[in-house]
Design a protein around this nucleic acid. Sequence first.
DNA 1: TTGCCCATGTAATTCGTTACATGATTTC
DNA 2: GAAATCATGTAACGAATTACATGGGCAA
Lengths: 186, 186
Amino acid sequence: MPKENTTVYIILGLLNHEDLSGYDIKKRIDSMISYFWEAGYGQIYPTLARLEAEGLVEKRISRSSGGPEKNLYSITSGGKEELRKWMSVPEQKEYTKYEILVKLFFGKLASFEENTHRLQAFKERHVKNMEMMEQYGRNLQQVMDREEDHLFYYLTVLFGKHIYAAYIEWADEALAILEDKYGNKK
Amino acid sequence: MPKENTTVYIILGLLNHEDLSGYDIKKRIDSMISYFWEAGYGQIYPTLARLEAEGLVEKRISRSSGGPEKNLYSITSGGKEELRKWMSVPEQKEYTKYEILVKLFFGKLASFEENTHRLQAFKERHVKNMEMMEQYGRNLQQVMDREEDHLFYYLTVLFGKHIYAAYIEWADEALAILEDKYGNKK
DNA sequence: TTGCCCATGTAATTCGTTACATGATTTC
DNA sequence: GAAATCATGTAACGAATTACATGGGCAA
């Protein structure tokens, strides 16, 4: 998924809110963003180095509270400019790839059990995701009016809820259809 | 999105059904698969060459009906074996990346208009996708019992319908929330 | 004759994952 | 003393997009 690198702007966006280390950034992404955009260390650290070289962020070393050394990054005015520019571009890329759909598409080549197990595993995974979203949504609603950001975080959580609900409903329907056609009718 | 290449198996799966050229494969993917897994020529042609070198597919040249030359590929018994093995593996990878969610997450940095335009464009795009899915679903239902494959195709179409419906519902909700907070109350 | 669809491919580049490597500190 | 967490990075690889390049046939 090449072209204009979105991970760059996630990092800039997070740094625009507060100074963070690469490690912190990873945690932020994992907890608030990963369900619509993931990023690993192998991407974050090199990207930070690149952004620093371009003058969009600045590094300083922090050894504040006993813990190990940290490279704390802050966004520069150039970085803010970049971020703002990106925000005003209406392009919106979407990449969705579902291996389960590919396997189901060729489902004739699998047994009834293989197909239903796949669907069940898919469903269970997303039931858990749904529960996480609901928990996260509840937490957010309690602090909703404390910061303007929270409203936007909430909109993304809402997205997660809708998507996971759709996954679960689809899995149920698909299972019912397969059950109906191939299941043991005693 | 590395590791076991899914595009390989899409190609093998399609060739398992009928002999096809690279160009045909692209068309099949675009029309039936692309909404859950995309592939471009830059991937298809090199993959076919690789599969041929590995003995999983065989190429023959066809100049049947007046048109230009075609490289027609057929799956070998080794290819069928590979495909069957892959089908029995329960792993299911999912990659979803939504740039719009990233931009909305940092929505504080954009204007009300930018945020709502983004959501509206997203919605309209998926309303169209939804209509395509519905059309495709109707077509499929008419030929449903002609081939066993069709049932599985239908399950993937059903997935599309659920997902697009969720996108649209979410966009409406998100727009209503933003409207409520920032819209002009006359 | 212009443009579109058929048809095949290559090259450059980027994005992203995974595995590897290291070491300090905190908690049980 | 062991395990978990904090913390930073590199290297290798693979997946995927994009742009480039070429050429034939057919229809308006």
